[in-house]
């Protein structure tokens, strides 16, 4: 409602110039612009940008594997914690040379923490995923182990031990594939 050019119309000028004019000067009132089309377009653009923007940027999980070496490393079987993922995505575990036992995904975290605290830094985790297992499940297992790692570090630190993580990807042997099939 702002006065459209009210300041321009000086009283003297009006008196001098338009005194005898027959045409009546319309007093200029505050003007309005119809904003509806502009608002339409702005909303259209706004919805477009809102739908197309993705707020989540992908994250990364850091993985490191040992270099290709031919020689085999001797491992104390008693400290070996093996995790298997069967072709259908089911999880199994075994300690040392024991037979694999089924393990629920929800119990994995507590199991990893418990075993690592029991054997301190000596526990070696071997992860044996089946080539047929869905990749999503593999990452889920790795993620749970990473979460457990935070707790293990904290608990071992309380005991004054520096955590050294021992983890490896191992390929399933044909005998193990057969063994897991029967479970």
């Amino acid at each position: 409602m702002a006065g459209g050019g009210g300041g321009l119309e000086l009283p003297e000028r009006q008196r001098r110039g338009k005194k005898h004019s027959k045409r009546k000067k319309k007093k200029r009132v505050g003007f309005r612009i119809d904003m509806t089309p502009m608002v339409d377009i702005v909303f259209l653009l706004l919805t477009f940008f809102m739908y197309t923007t993705t707020m989540v940027t992908p994250q990364v999980m850091e993985i490191s594997v040992p270099k290709e070496v031919e020689e085999n490393v001797e491992v104390n079987q008693a400290n070996l914690f093996t995790l298997y993922v069967r072709g259908d995505g089911k999880l199994f575990f075994s300690m040392g040379t024991d037979e694999p036992q089924p393990l629920a995904m929800s119990d994995l975290r507590s199991k990893a923490v418990e075993l690592n605290l029991l054997r301190k830094n000596k526990l070696i985790t071997a992860f044996k995923p089946s080539p047929d297992a869905p990749y999503g499940v593999i990452v889920q297992v790795l993620d749970i182990l990473n979460q457990a790692e935070a707790e293990i570090i904290r608990q071992l630190q309380a005991e004054g031990i520096k955590r050294e993580r021992k983890f490896a990807f191992v390929k399933l042997s044909p005998e193990e594939v057969e063994k897991l099939k029967g479970l």
């Binding site: 995923p129 047929d132 990749y135």
Partner: peptide, 24 residues
């Protein structure tokens, strides 16, 4: 299937790229 990832990791290892990332 994990086979695809396993093969890719093997190729990376062969080329001495032992530290890499999984996008999640």
């Amino acid at each position: 299937r994990y086979k695809w990832i396993e093969d890719a990791i093997d190729v990376l290892r062969k080329n001495n790229a032992t530290a890499f990332n999984f996008v999640t």
